[in-house]
């Protein structure tokens, strides 16, 4: 009887311990752990005001040229379609390396981003250039697959030459509060990445609130993400300035605590040069100039590059441009 009571109370105790109640505060302490502590709360209206303020920044002349070139060099040129073929991927890879041959001195994009099945094709296509290969994985875009499938998916991409892995988190698990599951999954994928850098896609359009975005950012960072990324591009809204700002602040707090830099990749929905420049302003005014390189900041985009190119040419010639003069991929 006593033994029964003992084991019962042990069970009870372990249940309490397993529950790990959230420590309400301490979001900024050095022992911050998103699985034990609440993340800092985020006021959406305040974020909107901050973003609106950033959008009033006027980028002109030299700073504009410099910024636009920077944007080109930060693009992950992307094709993620069911109908992708080696032919399409090869053409895109060529574009990544030769954004506008008529205009020498322009950088290449940072990377091309493709499905795992296309990694080998792309790797061969960019051979000899600085363009990296990024591959989505983990049953992109829904992430609705068992862990072993996701691990295989990731290893396949890495083995075929992916330099970077863009994984998706399990949003369903996140929304039902299973943060530990989300954390463990990211940690497992990170291990499977080996030397490849891991970008963790939060799919913020499904997380809905900025508080969730912040929490997911903190979990991803603590689980080993090298980059955090907003979206798959398959869900609306994709990247927004508000969401990106929230993620940048998570990166900043992590850096302030640990000295470790994490990269940021807004993806989907950024199609104009002006919008891209505002993102750069935001990075500059939150994380600082140190993040203004493609090692730490990327744009996931397919049509952004041409708008930036058209702006550059317009600035040099003073004439507004036509898309007929810029290759579509």
């Amino acid at each position: 009887m006593a033994a029964f009571l003992l084991s019962f109370s042990y069970l009870f105790l372990s249940l309490i311990l397993l529950k790990k109640p959230m420590n309400k505060l301490k979001p900024f302490s050095s022992d911050f752990d998103p699985l034990r502590h609440e993340s800092p709360s985020v006021d959406k209206v305040g974020v909107e005001e901050r973003v609106a303020r950033i959008q009033t920044r006027s980028i002109k002349n030299e700073s504009k040229i410099q910024g636009l070139k920077l944007v080109l060099n930060m693009i992950d040129l992307t094709t993620l379609e069911g109908k992708d073929t080696p032919g399409k991927v090869k053409q895109m890879c060529y574009k990544a390396m030769h954004l506008l041959d008529a205009h020498p001195g322009l950088p290449a994009t940072a990377a091309v981003c493709v499905y795992p099945s296309m990694v080998g094709i792309a790797k061969a296509a960019v051979k000899g250039s600085d363009v990296k290969i990024a591959s989505v994985s983990t049953a992109f875009p829904s992430g609705q697959a068992p862990l072993n499938v996701k691990l295989d998916d990731t290893r396949f991409a890495v083995e075929n030459g992916a330099d970077e892995i863009d994984m998706v988190i399990s949003r369903g698990k996140f929304l039902s509060g299973e943060y530990q599951f989300v954390f463990d999954e990211i940690a497992a994928i990170k291990e499977a990445c080996g030397k490849a850098r891991l970008k963790v896609i939060l799919e913020t359009g499904e997380l809905v609130t900025l508080d969730n975005v912040r929490k997911a950012s903190d979990i991803a960072i603590h689980a080993g993400a090298d980059f955090i990324k907003t979206s798959t591009g398959k869900i609306q809204p994709a990247a927004t300035m508000q969401v990106t700002y929230t993620m940048l602040m998570a990166i900043k707090d992590h850096y302030d605590r640990t000295g470790v830099m994490i990269g940021m990749k807004p993806a989907g929905g950024i199609s104009t040069a002006k919008a891209a420049l505002h993102y750069l302003v935001m990075v500059k005014e939150t994380l600082g100039d140190a993040w203004l390189s493609n090692e730490w900041f990327r744009f996931g985009a397919s049509s952004l590059a041409n708008d930036v190119l058209m702006q550059i040419i317009k600035m040099e010639t003073g004439v507004y441009q036509s898309s007929d003069y810029f290759s579509i991929d």
Binding site: D43, K44, V45, E48, V208
Partner: peptide, 10 residues
Amino acid sequence: HPIENIGGAT
């Protein structure tokens, strides 16, 4: 006091 999600895209 701010009101979240008034008049915005979301």
